[in-house]
């Protein structure tokens, strides 16, 4: 009897919730135009919501994969897959990231879950850096944005991969393990002996919890990025573009604060190519997908603040010096 009663209650709750929402929506359409909001705030809102709408499908895929990892992959699997040798592990993680098509918002929940399963921190970083940067969509869009020239796309992938390996390797030397936030500890899945359907179910509920953990960071990141877009005048920076060092710094700064999706940033990068030399454009294209504003905030949900800042500084300086060294050759 309890079971029947419960399913009815669930139905009713669902209907009530839907009713609340419908009420809200119909209420909103009447209210929307009734008061004055400065246009810059509306611009801000449009950009903010559009970043979210763009990111949500990828975040959902990310949390579903994270849920899958949580339930179906055990620490033993990870132990078997990741090479004991540090160098090999770094290279493997970068290659895995390159093969794995992800974007920078979707990848954070995945690495978070991987790390709670015992993936070493440097491997997770390698995976995080190459995942959004090297994938077919990014290659295609870069190719198109730069006048169907494969050079930029090739340089972006090649240098990006090199830089990711250097960063991941430095992380393995500089940082000890245990950079996870206090609340995240190794989990011991005692769920092996449950039925397949049960496990699918708990994978989904885990995904939901993961989504709620992640969403707030995504939202703060998107909000900050849109504030920058609306209030930061790119124009004033463009005038000081003569010096290659300064222009590289400016372009990397842009990439960081604009927080564009790696699949869409190529056209923006290309639109700066009249003003900045190629190495600076590459700085924009490589640094942006690896770490940006939105992504930094999301990383705070996984790692300690100190570690996040460390990785940020490390990545920025490796990108900066690599491109500075190579700028005469590209």
């Amino acid at each position: 009897m309890n079971r029947v009663f419960r399913s009815h209650i669930i139905d009713i709750t669902g209907i009530i919730l839907i009713a609340i929402l419908v009420y809200f929506i119909s209420f909103s359409s009447g209210l929307a135009l009734s008061f004055d909001i400065p246009p810059s705030l509306l611009n801000l809102n449009v950009i903010f919501i559009s970043i979210l709408i763009e990111a949500l499908p990828f975040v959902l895929i990310g949390v579903l994969i994270a849920g899958f990892i949580q339930i179906f992959i055990t620490e033993d699997h990870i132990k078997r897959w990741i090479p004991k040798n540090r160098t090999a592990a770094v290279i493997m993680s970068c290659v895995a990231g390159a093969l794995f098509p992800a974007c920078e918002c979707g990848i954070v929940p995945i690495i978070r879950r991987l790390m709670s399963k015992g993936v070493p921190v440097y491997a997770a970083i390698g995976f995080m850096l190459t995942g959004p940067l090297i994938n077919p969509i990014v290659i295609a869009s870069t190719y198109m944005a730069f006048g169907n020239d494969f050079e930029m796309a090739g340089l972006r992938m090649g240098l990006g991969f090199l830089i990711a390996i250097i960063v991941a390797f430095s992380v393995s030397i500089i940082f000890k393990s245990g950079q996870l936030k206090e609340s995240i500890h190794l989990s011991h899945s005692s769920e092996n002996n449950r039925s397949f359907l049960d496990r699918i179910w708990s994978m989904l509920t885990h995904s939901i919890d993961e989504f709620f953990d992640m969403a707030k960071y995504l939202i703060i990141g998107a909000l900050l990025a849109s504030i920058v877009q609306v209030y930061m005048p790119a124009k004033t920076f463009l005038q000081s573009a003569d010096n290659p060092v300064v222009s590289l710094l400016i372009m990397m700064g842009f990439a960081y604060v604009l927080s564009l999706c790696s699949e869409a940033d190529a056209f923006i990068g290309a639109s700066f190519s009249s003003i900045f030399p190629k190495s600076s454009i590459l700085g924009f294209l490589i640094f942006g997908p690896m770490i940006d504003f939105k992504n930094t905030i999301m990383m705070l949900s996984v790692f300690r603040m100190k570690f996040v800042l460390g990785v940020l500084a490390l990545t920025a300086s490796v990108v900066f010096f690599t491109l500075l060294l190579l700028q005469n050759f590209i």
């Binding site: 246009p39 509306l42 809102n45 449009v46 979210l52 609306v230 124009k235 639109s271 009249s274």
Partner: peptide
């Protein structure tokens, strides 16, 4: 904000923030 604020088209002030005329010469 998504439900209650109207969707606005980006305007000239954004064009200016994006770099304005300076980026038009690119191709």
């Amino acid at each position: 904000t998504g439900f209650f604020l109207p969707a606005k088209t980006l305007d000239a002030s954004i064009a200016e923030k994006k770099g304005g005329l300076a980026i038009l010469g690119n191709q």
